[in-house]
Amino acid sequence: MKKRNSFRRILTIGVCTGLLFCISGCAGQEKQMTDQAETRPQMIIGSDNYPPFNYEDADGKPAGIDVDLATEAFDRLGYDAVFTYIDWEAKKQFLENGDIDCIWGSFSIDGRENQYHWTTPYMISRQVVAVSKDSDIYTLADLEGKRVAVQSTTKPEEIFASHTDERIPELAEIFSLQNRELIYPFLSKGYADAVAAHETAILQCMKDYDLEYRILEEPLQTVGLGVAFSKYDDRGIETELSQVFEDMREDGTLEEILENYLEHPEDYLEVDTCEK
């Protein structure tokens, strides 16, 4: 009888010990998973305030087309996307210094192909000219002798300053402003006769501030938007990200994100139609 009781005690101790090992093991696995989640690598993305691609929501958090796309795309690659606002004029310097991992902010590939390691374009955008509703400017040719406001270091500034597009006449003046938001007051107050920027950004500004501009039917250029990495960055992330864009295009995620911000999102996904 004593031997049987002893056996039962030994069995009980064994079971309890096994449970303790199990609980300890499970807790260890949970801690390991938590540690892995906490140590997930970050991808630092340089951008600027450029609705609807990137802006701060009511809670002061980054929001917009590029923010949603980057969050989803880098999540698929195992990174946490972290947006930081930078001086857009110094974007390449930030990248070369290693302050950011990439530039992602409605950034046009066209004309800059050799300056960065680029992803394939994830969408297209039209660079356009907008004027006041009662303006007598209806075509690009009508800009002769007029004043145009643009954001500095952008594609419109390059187009107007280069004098290589035969459609662009001689302007009276080009206002190149570091702060994108200032180009619209320049137009509204009559300092400029027209502004030039991404069509999506102009439409967003009109919506946000209840402005009535007229966008010229003839675009300056149709460009592909991509993500730029330093030429010295040999990690090959731009190639991996390009594949993710293709996957997101095929599974409908790209269009689903764009339709939260743009009417007719399918029109912006025809990347094969943009000038390369």
Rank of each mutant, 00 (worst) to 15 (best):
G46M: 08
G64D: 13
K189Y: 14
G98I: 07
N5R: 08
Y184L: 09
G145Y: 06
L140F: 14
Q42Y: 06
G226S: 01
L220W: 04
D80T: 12
A58G: 04
G25T: 01
L262Q: 05
T164Y: 14
I215E: 12
T253D: 06
R180Q: 12
E240F: 04
D233E: 11
S125N: 12
R40P: 00
D48V: 05
T164L: 15
E238G: 02
G226V: 00
A192T: 07
L241E: 03
A228F: 11
V150K: 08
I202W: 03
P51L: 05
I237Q: 12
R249E: 11
Y79F: 14
D59A: 14
T273V: 06
T34N: 06
W88Y: 14
A149V: 00
S125A: 15
T153W: 09
L269N: 13
N260A: 07
M43K: 12
E266N: 08
A172H: 11
S242F: 00
S24T: 10
G145P: 04
H264T: 09
A70H: 04
D48N: 07
V67K: 09
E158A: 15
Y184T: 14
Y261K: 06
K231V: 08
Q127P: 01
I174F: 06
E217H: 10
L19A: 13
Q115W: 12
S106L: 10
A37M: 10
R214Y: 09
D87F: 09
A27V: 03
I124S: 10
K189N: 13
L254T: 01
E238T: 01
F94R: 03
D68A: 11
I23K: 09
K3W: 13
D75I: 03
G252R: 06
Q42E: 11
R235Y: 09
E263I: 04
E238S: 07
G28N: 07
I237Y: 12
T273F: 02
D134K: 08
Q115E: 15
Q32C: 02
Q127K: 10
F186N: 02
K231M: 07
E256S: 13
A201Q: 14
F53I: 00
E173T: 04
D210I: 08
D57Q: 03
M206K: 05
P41H: 05
C274F: 15
V195M: 02
T34F: 07
I103N: 04
V223K: 00
L20T: 13
M43Y: 14
K2N: 15
T71K: 15
E266V: 05
D101F: 12
Y261M: 04
L20G: 05
T222W: 08
Y116I: 00
I137A: 11
G190C: 03
Y122W: 12
D165Y: 13
T139P: 04
K92V: 09
F186W: 05
S24P: 01
K276A: 14
P219R: 08
F94K: 04
R147G: 00
I109Q: 02
C205L: 13
Q243P: 01
S162N: 10
E246H: 12
D142M: 07
E72A: 10
D247C: 02
V148Y: 00
P219E: 05
E56A: 07
D267C: 03
E217A: 13
L20D: 07
V223R: 01
M33S: 06
R126T: 10
E170S: 11
L19W: 11
I45N: 11
Y268W: 12
T39A: 12
R126K: 15
E250D: 13
D247W: 08
Q93H: 06
W104I: 15
Y268S: 13
I109N: 00
R40E: 10
Q32T: 10
D59V: 03
S108H: 12
